[in-house]
C-alpha cells in the first residue's frame, strides 16, 4: 500500500510554487504597477498578478498576457520596497508557460526557442538562420512579410548574412551544455 502511494503521488508539484516563494513578502503596495512602462497594455496589473500567483490561481495567471509583456526594464525590481526580484518572477512565469506549452504564449515561446536552437548548434546566434527557423515553426505564411523591409535594409548594409554563404565563427556546438541543463532541470 505504502509503495503504491510512493509510485503515484496524489499531487503533481505545483509549477507556481517557486514563483510564489519569490513573491511571499509582497505587501501589494503597487509600486511595481506604477513603475511599469508596459502596464497600459496589460490585462492584469503586475500587483494583481503577484496576488494571483500567491493565491495559486494558476489558470488565471496563465490566461493573462501580463508576464509576456514584461520587457525586463527592471524599474519594478529597482523600486520594490520589499526588494523582491520581480523581473525574475516575470521571467519565471515565461519559463513555466514555455514548459507547459501555454497556447497564448506560443508565438513568444517559438521565437525564443528558435533563437536558442541557433545558439545550441553554433554557440552564437545567426539572425537569418534563427528567423527562418521561427517562420517555419510558426506555420504562418504571412509572418515573414512583417520583417521583410527591415531584413532587406539590414542585408543591404551587410549586417545579416545568408547562413550558407558565411563561414560560421564561434565556439561551435553547445549541445553538451544544453543536454546537461535539461537533465538537471528534469531532476529538480
Amino acid at each position: 500500500m505504502e509503495s503504491a502511494i510512493k509510485q503515484k503521488p496524489a499531487f503533481l508539484p505545483d509549477p507556481l510554487a517557486p514563483v510564489c516563494k519569490m513573491l511571499q513578502a509582497c505587501i501589494q503596495c503597487g509600486t511595481c504597477t506604477a513603475s511599469c512602462v508596459n502596464s497600459f497594455a496589460m490585462d492584469q496589473t503586475p500587483r494583481r498578478l503577484w496576488r494571483m500567483v500567491i493565491m495559486g490561481q494558476k489558470d488565471e495567471v496563465f490566461r493573462s498576457k501580463t508576464f509576456a509583456l514584461c520587457s525586463s526594464c527592471y524599474y519594478c525590481t529597482l523600486r520594490c520596497p520589499r526588494g523582491l526580484p520581480l523581473t525574475e518572477a516575470m521571467a519565471a512565469l515565461k519559463q513555466i508557460a514555455a514548459k507547459e506549452k501555454i497556447a497564448s504564449c506560443k508565438s513568444g515561446t517559438l521565437f525564443y526557442t528558435s533563437f536558442l536552437e541557433s545558439v545550441r548548434c553554433h554557440g552564437r546566434v545567426s539572425e537569418m538562420e534563427f528567423m527562418t527557423h521561427y517562420f517555419i515553426r510558426m506555420k504562418n505564411p504571412v509572418a515573414p512579410f512583417k520583417y521583410t523591409s527591415l531584413g532587406m535594409r539590414l542585408l543591404s548594409k551587410g549586417k545579416i548574412a545568408i547562413p550558407l554563404t558565411k563561414k560560421k565563427k564561434g565556439p561551435g556546438s553547445l549541445k553538451a551544455l544544453f543536454r546537461k541543463v535539461a537533465e538537471l532541470e528534469q531532476l529538480s
Binding site: 521571467a91 519559463q95 525564443y112 552564437r124 546566434v125 565556439p171
Partner: peptide, 15 residues
C-alpha cells in the same frame, strides 16, 4: 571561443 550570452531568450525558457 566566446558564446551567446542567452540574450532575452534564455531567461524566457530556462533559468
Amino acid at each position: 571561443g566566446w558564446n551567446c550570452c542567452g540574450a532575452s531568450a534564455a531567461e524566457s525558457i530556462s533559468y
